[in-house]
Simulated scan of single mutants.
Amino acid sequence: MAIFKMRYEDDWKKNYIQEFNEMRENYEKKLYIKQVEIDNLKSEIVNIKQSKNTLKPKEKQITDMDIQSIKDLRFCGLSYSEIAKETRWSKATISRVLNGLYD
């Protein structure tokens, strides 16, 4: 009887292969969906990183002539407040100039 295969044995193999292929297709669909989600998140990260780089630092607004003027006034003995009134620069800027930040 081993020579003749029974029909139910062939049906079992076909069913097994069909179920396996269906499972594989479902798994591949899920993988594809997850990969799309990962790609979208990666692109969002890149966009966020690029948007942070658009912020540029404030350029130096004080001129070299202003810096020298502040240093000269301080050398003449004026206080930070007096220099601020004379030059219209803030005391913080005057402090930065005199402490060498703009050198």
Rank of each mutant, 00 (worst) to 15 (best):
Asp39Gln: 14
Asp39Ala: 15
Asn40Cys: 10
Leu41Ser: 13
Lys42Pro: 06
Lys42Asn: 14
Lys42Arg: 11
Ser43Lys: 03
Ser43Arg: 01
Glu44Lys: 07
Glu44Met: 08
Glu44Asn: 06
Ile45Phe: 10
Ile45Arg: 06
Asn47Phe: 13
Asn47Asp: 12
Ile48His: 07
Ile48Glu: 08
Ile48Tyr: 07
Lys49Asn: 10
Ser51Gln: 04
Ser51Cys: 02
Ser51Ile: 02
Lys52Ser: 08
Lys52His: 13
Lys52Gly: 12
Lys52Ala: 12
Lys52Ile: 15
Lys52Val: 13
Asn53Tyr: 04
Thr54Leu: 14
Thr54Lys: 13
Thr54Gln: 14
Thr54His: 10
Leu55Trp: 01
Leu55Tyr: 06
Lys56Val: 03
Lys56Tyr: 00
Lys56Asn: 01
Lys56Gly: 01
Pro57Gly: 01
Pro57Val: 00
Lys58Pro: 15
Glu59Lys: 11
Lys60Thr: 00
Lys60Asp: 09
Ile62Asp: 01
Ile62Ala: 01
Ile62Leu: 01
Thr63Val: 04
Thr63Phe: 07
Asp64Asn: 14
Asp64Met: 11
Met65Asp: 14
Asp66Gln: 15
Gln68Tyr: 03
Gln68Trp: 02
Gln68Ala: 09
Gln68Met: 10
Ser69Thr: 07
Ser69Glu: 08
Ile70Leu: 12
Ile70Trp: 14
Lys71Ala: 14
Lys71Val: 04
Lys71Asn: 15
Asp72Gly: 10
Leu73Thr: 03
Leu73Tyr: 13
Leu73Asp: 10
Phe75Trp: 12
Phe75His: 10
Cys76Asn: 11
Gly77Cys: 05
Gly77Tyr: 05
Gly77Asn: 07
Leu78Ala: 05
Leu78Lys: 07
Tyr80Pro: 00
Ser81Lys: 11
Ser81Leu: 09
Glu82Asp: 13
Glu82Gln: 14
Ile83Ser: 05
Ile83Leu: 11
Ala84Asp: 08
Ala84Tyr: 15
Ala84Arg: 13
Ala84Ile: 09
Lys85Met: 03
Lys85Arg: 06
Lys85Thr: 02
Lys85Cys: 02
Lys85Asp: 06
Lys85Pro: 07
Glu86Arg: 06
Thr87Pro: 02
Thr87His: 00
Thr87Ile: 00
Thr87Glu: 02
Thr87Cys: 00
Arg88Thr: 10
